[in-house]
């Protein structure tokens, strides 16, 4: 036994180290993905017998108004959430100075990302309050009519996305601040000698060097947009009349809520969301694979 170990330990050791991690990850992450796909072919209330319905859940989805509302909102989230990236860059450029106390400013600007989305959601629902909220005090003082943002079908999703952009911008800012730190000062000075300045300097000299930061910012922002659940649950609970739902929220609502447990249907929604996410995961993995090969 010990002789065998001595001879083969370099071959066996990695699996020894990997075993507990792989076991946990398979049990709680990888296997459940396949189970969900499987459940999506059944009608199931979570307790009783499962009934095989084939593609029935997916067929039903095709005709489900609420599904399209959620899908549309997901697209809205994806597109508008991207604003966090230029906004983060803008804040980072603003703070990328060396005046006294700038470090404290940087950490205070980062603050919104550290606090829970539950708190962010509560703060913003209060900001949007039609009677006392700061937004509407501001609007009415300018002579406009107050907008009950979170009770208004046309505004509600934009209102929630704006709340989400606050911490997300802080996240992108910190990525860019780190990136800016590593920008080669000689290239900048050389470009300045060639009379490049302002936006052109940013676009042609600085941004290409910030590429890794931009890549990470895009990845985390896409994931953040597709994971939007907390804010919707806290600020509107999907309302008014389901108009602020996204797939992640709609799935939860179908799987267990007062409408009854429809695990199979919920799983089908989750599979659609997973398929969308898979596109991004594949792009990310492909890029990583290329980088690994480059070693």
């Amino acid at each position: 036994m010990s002789a065998y170990w001595k001879k083969n330990q370099q071959r066996l050791a990695p699996w020894l180290f990997l075993a507990p991690g792989i076991f946990m990850f398979l049990m709680y992450v990888i296997i459940p993905i396949f189970q969900s796909v499987n459940i999506s072919f059944y009608a199931w209330d979570g307790l009783g017998e499962r009934e095989w319905v084939g593609a029935g859940n997916y067929v039903e989805l095709m005709d489900d108004e609420a599904f399209y509302t959620s899908l549309k909102n997901n697209v809205l989230w994806l597109v508008l959430y991207m604003l966090a990236i230029p906004a983060g860059l803008f804040v980072a450029l603003f703070l990328n100075q060396t005046v006294r106390g700038i470090r404290i400013y940087k950490s205070l600007f980062f603050f919104p990302f550290v606090i829970s989305q539950v708190v962010v959601g509560l703060v913003f629902s209060w900001f949007y309050d039609p009677k006392y909220g700061l937004l509407n005090i501001f609007l009415t003082s300018l002579g406009f009519e107050a907008i009950p943002v979170l009770a208004d079908e046309t505004w509600v999703t934009y209102g929630i996305i704006a709340a989400g952009l606050w911490p997300q911008t802080a996240y992108c800012m910190i990525l860019y601040l780190t990136g800016l730190n590593a920008v080669d000062p000689e290239q900048i000075e050389a470009a300045r000698l060639d009379n490049a300045k302002g936006f052109k300097l940013l676009w042609y000299v600085v941004l290409p060097q910030l590429k890794p930061a931009t890549f990470i910012a895009v990845v985390v922002t896409v994931i953040g947009a597709l994971r939007s659940f907390d804010l919707i649950s806290i600020m509107t609970d999907g309302g008014p009349w389901g108009s602020s739902r996204v797939l992640a929220f709609y799935m939860y609502e179908q799987a267990f809520s007062e409408y009854g447990f429809r695990m199979g249907y919920g799983a089908a929604i989750a599979v659609v969301l997973f398929a969308i996410m898979m596109i991004y995961i594949s792009v990310f993995l492909y890029k990583m694979y290329r980088d690994e090969r480059g070693y």
Binding site: F229, A255, A270, M277, I281
Partner: peptide, 16 residues
């Protein structure tokens, strides 16, 4: 596997 699993939407894991 670890990297991809980390990006998965929570909802696909929820029921199982």
């Amino acid at each position: 596997m670890f990297v991809a699993g980390n990006f998965v939407p929570f909802q696909i894991l929820m029921v199982p």
